[in-house]
């Protein structure tokens, strides 16, 4: 669903941009493919997501525990009347439980029709990357299986893995 949506946005943008291009011819092809990534740490790995996929980033709020939920579900919380399921991203990706700290952040995304909060160890910068520089993900990145990534970007301070949020949140193991 997400994929589709982002694809569409991309398409729309392409269209408008080609229109502007034909008129003004200011933007280069490289600039066109630039997307902004919100980055965060899951365990030691630096992961990123298209910033447009993220609804908001919150500090940890009071949660309601759900007995008998899967172990990676920390609970549910009330986000302005919306029920949000909070998931420990580290645990979901097989990195073990995320330790409680002040740097914890809750990344709220909309996936498959409902809101999900991804608990991450801490957040990093917003990084602009060029889509053409994307490389194939390795089989394993800092302990996270490669299948959860759509690609990897090389940056001065290391690698940013692009999380495939639908895959991460799908219930199939």
């Amino acid at each position: 669903m997400f994929e589709k949506r982002t694809g569409k946005i991309g398409g729309d943008m392409d269209k408008t941009k080609t229109e502007t291009q034909t008129k003004t011819e200011i933007k280069t092809e490289a600039e066109m493919n630039v997307v902004e990534l919100a980055t965060f740490y899951v365990g030691d790995a630096l992961c990123g997501m298209n910033i447009l996929q993220i609804q908001e980033i919150n500090k940890l709020m009071m949660m309601t525990k759900v007995p008998q939920a899967p172990d990676f579900v920390l609970g549910i919380l009330n986000l302005r009347g919306q029920i949000v399921t909070v998931i420990d991203l580290g645990k979901k990706l097989g990195m073990g439980e995320t330790d409680m700290s002040l740097e914890l952040r809750n990344v709220i995304v909309n996936s498959t029709g409902s809101s999900v909060g991804l608990l991450v160890k801490k957040i990093g910068d917003v990084v602009a990357v060029n889509l053409t520089n994307k490389e194939q993900p390795p089989a394993n990145m800092s302990g996270i299986q490669g299948k959860f990534f759509t690609g990897v970007y090389k940056k001065e301070n290391g690698l940013i893995g692009i999380l495939d949020i639908n895959k991460v949140l799908s219930m199939e193991e």
């Binding site: 939920a69 899967p70 998931i87």
Partner: peptide, 11 residues
Amino acid sequence: IKPLGIHLQGC
């Protein structure tokens, strides 16, 4: 009533 997310459908 508000529905629970997919991760809690198993409950």
